[in-house]
Write a protein that binds this DNA or RNA. Structure first.
Length: 591
DNA sequence: GTGAAGGGCCAC
DNA sequence: AAACGTGGCCCTTCAC
């Protein structure tokens, strides 16, 4: 593909180029940077293209004149990028949005993200790749040469081939969008695509903001756990080698306590009737009779804390900010849920000792808000089950209310045990639980479990009907959708009963979990707009929870913004059931 | 040495 | 045989 491009490196031609481009409806947009993280480098090139004509803007000469976020000569570019029109088409726009915000000081607005669109169209097909080369190949049949992607963008003089490569990427965006939009329309994904695109900027901002972790507190906590581990590990070692020693020629056997194989072997030698796996829930029943098993479980607990949540996480604190800047994948799961890594701040243990290490810096507060039982409310809304809906409308404790109906007693007579059964049932149905699993979980016999589930579904007939229909659709149409229209396609062999069962459970779970993700994403956009220009910063999200940091003086106001954003987003998708958000202003991340 | 696979376990 | 959904991280084991 031949590309016409123009290299721009002075103020006059930049102004002219921007004036020319601002009347376009769509612009391909890309940046070339000297590093992967905005804290580690600078933007060398900004490319903007209408498909025929591509401007490659070299920022190096501008950098020598001052701060790019205030430099008057760059105002036309900043205005173009922050304006809602033209639409900027980018592949993985979060990347460019972070650099733009950090170095040019403006939000990127009017985003069309070809990577997110490609993920939506793939509808859960995990085999599909979504890098630019793969997406261009899939939608345009064009093979892209990405060999220059990692070239040296800090050189004084960029080579012709470097500039041409940069121009090509931006130019490709325009025809790529056209093909993708066609597919989005066909698959009725326009609404969810807009939802996703609008969420890019809030996430870019969140990653730049980072989440403050009090390193000293964290180390104190680790010290405690390390001491525990030493004692427990020594005890466990002794208890286990008692069995091995008899079988060992040397009398002393060092067992790797982290090896399932070695630990299993040792336990067998001690005469413990070993289940198929050494998973906690399988070992739990043996713990009472065999102290060594109890000790193993205790050891596993502390070991997990130290490896997954130990010293490693401190290495993610950036010296520039003193904060953790994790990597969020916006469509981390087919359901639309986020995933998070480096580090995964969505899986910090719930215990106060861990959570309290994530705190507001001095002079600030954390505002922590989560949806109350949002998945069950979504299920109630979808199923239109009046009993289910009423339980939420009356505002009484939901699990108690379920227990009262299932056991046919007065709510005030519900025992703790009965409430616990109801709770596990309420959560189980969201995942498409079966009677055998429910029996195993609760310790009921299978007929008892079946009986209880029958009573549950007799109480909530509409719910039963909806779940059956969802399972039916998943094997007839082989698709499912969320409230925003997010799509998943199920691929399975008709003869593969396990896969078919999997699709049926997914057919029930996907719309619920996925709609919850839709709501959160909508809330993030509403929040981003409300808090813009205030001290409030989005710092973490955990599926149904949003954490914002703000100046103490603005905490109350921020709490209101956050609650409103979350409730309003919920009401857009849930019509028949009230949406409830718990908000807390706090010095620490603990509920 | 590196990487994949499997087991295990943390979050919602 | 599998048996309730979505992820990421750490460990061991094993193949190259």
């Amino acid at each position: 593909m031949e590309v016409y491009f123009q290299l721009i490196n002075d103020a006059a031609s930049l102004e002219k180029a921007c004036a020319q481009l601002e009347s376009e409806e769509y612009l391909g947009f890309d940046t070339e940077t000297t590093a992967l993280d905005p804290f580690d480098g600078y933007i060398r090139l900004v490319q903007l293209s209408n498909g025929k004509d591509t401007k490659v803007i070299d920022l190096k000469p501008f950098m020598e004149r001052g701060d790019l976020s205030t430099l008057p000569e760059l105002k036309p570019l900043r205005d173009l990028l922050s304006a809602p029109r033209p639409i900027k088409i980018a592949h993985n726009a979060k990347f460019d949005a972070k650099w733009t915000r950090h170095h040019l000081g403006v939000d990127l607005n009017g985003i069309f993200d070809t990577m997110l669109a490609s993920q939506l169209i793939a509808a859960g097909d995990q085999d599909r790749r979504h890098n630019l080369a793969a997406v261009s190949e899939f939608f345009l049949g064009i093979e892209m040469d990405k060999s220059q992607q990692v070239s040296d963008w800090s050189a004084d003089e960029l080579s012709h081939s470097q500039i041409e490569y940069a121009a090509k990427d931006a130019a490709t965006m325009v025809p790529l969008r056209e093909k993708i939009v066609e597919r989005l329309r066909q698959d009725e994904l326009i609404q969810v695509a807009k939802l996703e695109f609008d969420c890019v900027m809030p996430i870019a901002a969140m990653e730049l903001n980072g989440f403050f972790l009090d390193a000293d507190r964290w180390r104190e906590q680790l010290d405690k756990v390390e001491k525990q581990q030493k004692v427990i590990g020594l005890d466990l070692q002794k208890m286990l080698s008692a069995g091995v020693a008899q079988a060992s020629l040397f009398g002393v056997a060092e067992i790797n306590l982290n090896s399932q194989t070695q630990v299993s072997e040792a336990l067998k030698n001690l005469g413990v009737p070993m289940p198929e796996s050494t998973r906690a829930w399988q070992l739990q029943p043996l713990a009472e009779q065999y102290p060594v098993v109890a000790k193993l479980l205790e050891y596993r607990g502390v070991a997990k804390s130290l490896t997954s949540f130990g010293e490693n996480i401190l290495e993610f604190i950036r010296p520039e900010t003193g904060r953790i800047h994790a990597d969020f994948r916006q469509i981390g799961a087919p359901t639309g849920r986020f995933s998070c890594s480096k580090p995964n701040v969505q899986q910090i243990p719930h215990e106060v000792e861990y959570r309290r290490c994530f705190r507001a810096p001095d002079g600030k507060k954390l505002i922590v808000a989560d949806y109350s039982q949002v998945e069950l409310r979504i299920l109630a809304d979808f199923s239109e089950d009046q009993n289910f809906i009423n339980a939420f409308i009356t505002g009484e404790d939901f699990h108690t209310s379920t227990a009262a109906r299932v056991f046919n007693i007065d709510p005030k007579d519900v025992s703790a045990d009965q409430r616990s059964f109801a709770k596990r049932l309420n959560f189980g149905v969201v995942y498409g639980i079966g009677a055998s699993k429910f029996a195993m979980m609760t310790g009921l016999t299978e007929p008892e479990a079946e009986n209880m589930m029958r009573r549950y579904f007799t109480t909530y007939r509409g719910l039963d009907a909806w779940l059956r229909d969802a399972a039916r659709k998943s094997v007839i149409d082989r698709t499912a959708r969320t409230a925003s229209g997010r799509l998943v396609k199920f691929r399975f062999d008709e003869t593969d009963r396990a896969a078919k069962g999997g699709a049926q459970r997914n057919g029930k779970n996907f719309p619920i979990q996925g709609t919850s993700a839709d709501i959160l994403k909508r809330a993030l956009r509403l929040l981003h707009d409300k808090i813009s220009g205030t001290s409030a910063k989005l710092v973490n999200i955990i599926h149904d929870e949003i954490i914002v940091e703000a100046d103490t003086a603005e905490a109350e106001q921020t709490a209101k913004f956050l609650e409103d954003a979350m409730c309003d987003a919920g009401k857009e998708y849930i019509k028949r059931v009230p949406v409830n958000v718990d908000v807390k202003i706090s010095d620490e991340w603990s509920k």
